[in-house]
Amino acid sequence: MTIEGRAFVYGDNVNTDVIIPARYLTSPDPARLAEHCLEGLDPEFLKEREKGDIVVGGKNFGCGSSREHAPVALKAAGVACVVAKSFARIFYRNAINIGLPIVECAEAADGIKRGERVRIDLTEGEITNVTTKQSWGFAPLPQFAQEILAAGGLMKYAVAKKKGS
């Protein structure tokens, strides 16, 4: 699975309260959540976002609340992948479960600037900064996590598996 898009770059500890503030959690509708994604951290994101964008963060991306609304909001806002130095535990699990690809790679997180084009090969474990022509390797997700992502999330994966067996 290969993804290519434009980068939005943020710092450490991007928490779920800035990804989607709690006051918008009165609705689970992904399209509604997308309208407020990252609004407290970077209002420009909402104006510029396009399908296929890549969000790059520092360490502890997604810390805070367990709200699955956070990866849902990113995905619905068009984000195709999140690259970070490290992820908070619950966000990591949630992202895979709802089918949002995530990549842990500190070197890439340091080597990408806002607006640059980035290509990510999830299967091979390679990130390329298309703009600067730099590349980095990363450990691909475990097989079962890749299968969940390919199916579009944990529930779709479970249903498909049940039908197949």
């Binding site: 367990s66 619950i90 949630n94």
Partner: peptide
């Protein structure tokens, strides 16, 4: 498990308790 990050509170009783998202909880 609880679909709330502060589920870890119950460790005070000597239990293993951790927060998860809604899909993990649904499963």
């Amino acid at each position: 498990i609880g679909a709330d990050s502060h589920t870890c509170t119950y460790g005070a009783l000597g239990a293993f308790a951790t927060g998860v998202g809604s899909t993990d909880l649904a499963a």
